[in-house]
Amino acid sequence: MGASAPGAAFELKGRMATLSVLRVLNADTNAVLVQLDARLAQAPGFFDGMPLVIAPGQSVALDTPALVALVSGLKARGLTPVAVADLSSEQAAEAGLGLLRNLDAPSPKAASARPTSDSPSAYQPTRVVTTPVRSGQQIYARGGDLVITAAVSAGAEVMADGHIHIYGSLRGRALAGVQGDVNARIFCRSLHAELVAVAGHYRLSEQMDAELIDGPVMIALQGDDLQLSAV
């Protein structure tokens, strides 16, 4: 909220931000939205409000009506398209979005390229959270691991592109490997989770082994199977 602070009313800063890119591989908007719905259903709530850049895949001709339909379809699903890339400025204007040029120029690493341990430049600092994550709050460690030294409440959501460690009780939702890293894992000291997921494979509390509840647990993918085990 704005107390009447004297002086400058705003600052304009260059920031490197990581944005999710929706690469459109099919010029048929409906086909895109149908598949998207399936993906959204796997991680309910996770994509809420997520800012998106829309970019056509190679050799996909995305015309203006299709673009406009896609934008309204995305908004209807709670996503927030902010810009287009590799399209004309007229199309961007028509869709009411900004235009990003040279999207694939020096960008933060592509989603699929999870850093390997022998590439030192790929190091992403782990995000460390020392206060409780309360109901209604959401924390996303983009591009790396997440360590929480307090509790995650029911109704809270924590996510990471990498691993998640929770040194308190996990009562809310934890989603590791949200950009698709199947090797990501979740560790928690006391399992009471509403939902856990790795790379989109999820498990609801009612599907969790009662023996594991309240104990220290590791959650990892084995093939397509999400495994919960005591640690």
């Binding site: 409780p132 994550v133 309360r134 109901s135 209604g136 709050q137 409440s153 029911a154 109704g155 809270a156």
Partner: peptide, 9 residues
């Protein structure tokens, strides 16, 4: 309790 948790956030 849930509402209080939210307020604490």
């Amino acid at each position: 309790v849930r509402d209080s948790d939210r307020v604490l956030g």
